[in-house]
Simulated assay, not measured.
Amino acid sequence: MTKKIALYAGSFDPITNGHYDIVLRAAQIFDEVIVAVMTNTSKNYMFSYEEKEKMINQQFEKLDNVSVVDGENKLTVDLAKELKANVLVRSMRNTNDFIYESGVSQINHLQDNNIETLYLLSDPKYANISSSMIKEIITFGGNVSQLVAPEVEKLLKNKIKGIH
């Protein structure tokens, strides 16, 4: 029987409780879930790839079927083929995500029509969370404790203070 391997790709700058929820749910569906820290050329990052990988690894260290890889400067489909992942897991929070993700899925399908995309709808309590919003809230001294894990909140606060 073929092992069902899913790739969940994103910039994760930082990983949010919404991302965490999607990975947990995917880990119940697939034999293996690979979380890939990818490059999004339209974003300015707060954390390095190494910092994001460490942050994500801490979140999932107790799950045997979840791993983290660096997908810096790679196409998601190429990384999926390299890792033998046959499904891309994507999440949707709202209709804006639906429109964006539909385009991403079509482009990925053009790159390789053997890789499927599975969408998981966000839990409603996470539907308005984005990494960009979290960075803005923390920058101006707001409370993000319900939006990210305690370790991530600490890293965010240290980053704002200039502590690496």
Rank of each mutant, 00 (worst) to 15 (best):
V144A: 11
T41Q: 12
N86F: 09
S11P: 08
H19Y: 03
V37M: 04
I138D: 00
D123Q: 13
E116V: 15
R25N: 11
V37W: 01
L63Q: 11
M38L: 07
G162L: 09
L156S: 03
F30P: 03
N65L: 07
I129E: 02
M133D: 06
V104C: 10
Q59M: 14
M92W: 03
E101R: 04
E50Y: 01
I137P: 00
N65S: 09
Y8V: 09
D31K: 14
V104N: 08
A149Q: 13
F12W: 03
V144Q: 04
F12N: 01
K135T: 05
N114F: 10
E51C: 03
S48D: 00
D112L: 07
V35D: 00
F60C: 07
V104G: 01
F47M: 01
S11T: 14
I137D: 00
E153C: 06
K135L: 04
I163W: 06
K54L: 13
S11K: 11
A6L: 09
A80V: 10
G10I: 07
N128R: 15
K74I: 05
T139M: 12
N17P: 06
K74F: 09
I15D: 01
K161G: 05
Q28I: 11
K125H: 01
D78F: 07
T76W: 04
N108L: 05
V87S: 10
V66H: 01
Y8E: 07
